[in-house]
Simulated assay, not measured.
Amino acid sequence: LEKGALNFNISSFFYGDFFDFLKSKKGKGIGIAFPPTYKGGYEKMFSYVEDSFRYAHAPYNVFDPKEGGVMFKCLLENDENIIYSDRYFQEINDFLVGKINLGPGKNPIYTYSSVKRDKHYYIERDKNIKPSCIHILPMDYEFTDSTEISAKICPVSDVNYYKAFYMANKVNYTTGGDLGLVFMADGKAFGFSSFSKKLSTLEQIFMQSDFVVNSNTQRLSKLLIMLVKSHNVRMLIARKMANYYDGVKTTVYTTSPISMKYRGVLDLERRDEGKLMYSANFLDDSLKDLYRLWLKKYKK
């Protein structure tokens, strides 16, 4: 850590039980601890010592993450602290201020805080972006044969708003293009896309961004890209942009030779240094047709 990973110097080192270290923390500052979170780790490594010698064992505590709520309650009540954990603790529910869903197969992160309410710590992306009124699809929503898929034009400001939640930080979320589309399942949004007329040609419209919300459903991004090629979307774009485009194109900024996200749905048109260009023609298939194809091909 001291070699420049986070560009700071270590002010002190505590040699002892990590809980004693946490309890000794007072005042402003950041403390980093690496408690053992399972039994049988170091003990197993030195099991040959146990088999070879008889000696007086030193007493020590083993931290059980399941019992962390009692320990964290002490920290939160005695001083201003912020705790991140992948476990929910009923004992400190009063201090719960946030829950972060990381996606399929990953435990959510719970944030507990006893920091005074008149102090707020957060990343502010753009003061001018207004909250969207579009309702997002629940993370545990199950896509079935009876799901009603739809797409409609939405303000670019809605796309920009949700970019801040569902796209990587390195993406420029401020530029939403000239046209925004929202894709819905049973009336709730599962994805967005935006298009730029300036970066388009007469034949191909440029898709500036496309992303889906956090979901337990695998390959949801494939569904959105497939739906972009539908006749329904082509007509929405034609009416708004006053041009009947033949197809769609987009750029992927990556050093990889291919993009797994677009592979099999769009065609790799060109490779440049640090980026790939993908494109495809619009289809005569409807949203419903392409959704059924996705269910058959990608949905497990």
Rank of each mutant, 00 (worst) to 15 (best):
N7K: 04
N9H: 09
S12V: 01
F14R: 08
G16T: 01
F18G: 04
D20G: 15
D20P: 04
K23H: 11
S24C: 06
K26R: 15
G27C: 05
K28N: 15
G29A: 00
G31P: 05
A33G: 10
P35C: 05
E43Q: 12
M45W: 14
F46G: 08
S47P: 00
Y48A: 06
Y48T: 05
E50N: 10
S52P: 02
F53Q: 02
A58F: 08
V62K: 12
V62Q: 15
D64K: 12
E67D: 13
F72K: 02
F72I: 03
L76D: 01
L76T: 02
N81D: 10
D86C: 11
Y88N: 04
Y88Q: 05
Q90M: 14
Q90L: 14
D94E: 14
D94W: 06
P104E: 08
P104W: 03
P108I: 01
T111Q: 15
V115E: 14
V115K: 15
K119I: 09
K119E: 14
R125K: 06
N128I: 09
K130F: 13
I134S: 06
I149M: 12
S150Q: 11
A151D: 10
K152D: 11
C154D: 03
V159R: 01
A164P: 00
F165W: 02
F165E: 03
Y173S: 01
T174N: 11
G177S: 03
G177P: 01
V182A: 12
A185P: 00
D186M: 07
A189N: 01
G191H: 00
S193P: 04
F195Y: 14
S196C: 03
K197G: 10
K198L: 09
K198S: 08
L202D: 15
L202I: 10
F206Q: 06
M207T: 00
Q208T: 09
V212W: 00
N214K: 13
S215P: 01
Q218D: 11
K222I: 11
M226E: 13
H231M: 15
M235H: 15
I237S: 10
I237P: 03
A238G: 05
R239F: 10
R239Q: 10
K240I: 05
K240G: 05
M241Q: 02
M241I: 02
Y245A: 05
D246F: 12
D246V: 04
D246A: 13
T254C: 09
T254E: 08
P257M: 11
I258S: 15
M260A: 14
R263G: 14
R271V: 04
A280I: 09
L290I: 07
L290K: 07
R292W: 05
L295Y: 04
K296A: 07
K296C: 07
